[in-house]
Amino acid sequence: MKKLFLSLMMVALVAGATAQDYSKQAVRDAKRTERKEAMVAQMTNALQSHNFTFSASYLTPEFAGPQQALNQWNNYVTIYPGYLEVNLPYVSVAENVTMIPKRINFTTNRFTFWEDMNNGSQWTLVFQTEWDNVKYVFHLNYNIDNGLATLTLVPNMGNTASYTGTIQAN
């Protein structure tokens, strides 16, 4: 009888502990969903108001070889409502197919947005500026679900380059 009573007590304790774990899991799931919704709202606002920073982690030069990891913190494009700041590495290919590393580094208040497209979790922003007699067109694709962003830089003089990285609100 004593063993039966102890067995029933153990079953009751295990059932109670299991029920508590489910409630804790439900609370964690609710908090995770709340955090994700807040992040999506913050990023949507940043993209709509053109107030964000793209930080590049990888560079893929068109026609110039494989993807290259960028190990420096200063590879970015920052957009504020009043100005654009660009600080990106760039590889140009000369006629003899030699790679010439350069750095595109400028700040301007003269830039234009062509289009802002939002297809649910996919954003596409296209903007342009001209600096030092070179017209730069930027195509930014951002996936809110996984946080990955791709910036394609298309200069009118030079080669196209793609950058992979992340976006954060300013």
Score class of each variant (00 low, 15 high):
residue 129 T to A: 09
residue 75 N to S: 15
residue 54 F to Y: 03
residue 131 W to R: 08
residue 69 A to S: 11
residue 118 N to E: 13
residue 130 E to L: 02
residue 38 A to S: 07
residue 55 S to W: 03
residue 70 L to H: 03
residue 159 N to E: 07
residue 46 A to R: 00
residue 11 V to P: 03
residue 141 N to A: 03
residue 93 V to F: 01
residue 24 K to R: 06
residue 88 L to H: 11
residue 145 D to I: 00
residue 104 I to E: 14
residue 62 E to H: 08
residue 81 P to Y: 03
residue 114 W to Y: 12
residue 123 W to M: 09
residue 159 N to F: 06
residue 166 T to C: 01
residue 74 N to L: 06
residue 170 N to T: 03
residue 64 A to W: 05
residue 3 K to I: 14
residue 169 A to Q: 02
residue 66 P to M: 07
residue 36 K to Q: 14
residue 134 V to E: 04
residue 112 T to I: 13
residue 66 P to Y: 05
residue 42 Q to D: 05
residue 13 L to R: 04
residue 81 P to D: 11
residue 15 A to E: 01
residue 62 E to T: 08
residue 83 Y to D: 13
residue 149 A to N: 07
residue 20 Q to G: 03
residue 51 N to Q: 06
residue 117 M to F: 10
residue 10 M to G: 13
residue 2 K to H: 14
residue 86 V to P: 11
residue 41 A to D: 07
residue 116 D to R: 14
residue 33 T to A: 15
residue 101 P to C: 13
residue 113 F to P: 01
residue 62 E to P: 00
residue 50 H to D: 09
residue 97 V to N: 15
residue 65 G to I: 03
residue 119 N to F: 05
residue 51 N to H: 06
residue 87 N to V: 08
residue 79 I to F: 02
residue 74 N to T: 02
residue 119 N to M: 10
residue 113 F to S: 10
residue 53 T to R: 06
residue 150 T to C: 03
residue 13 L to A: 14
residue 69 A to C: 00
residue 27 V to N: 10
residue 12 A to C: 10
residue 58 Y to V: 12
residue 50 H to I: 00
residue 139 H to W: 11
residue 102 K to A: 14
residue 32 R to E: 14
residue 35 R to E: 15
residue 8 L to N: 11
residue 15 A to Y: 05
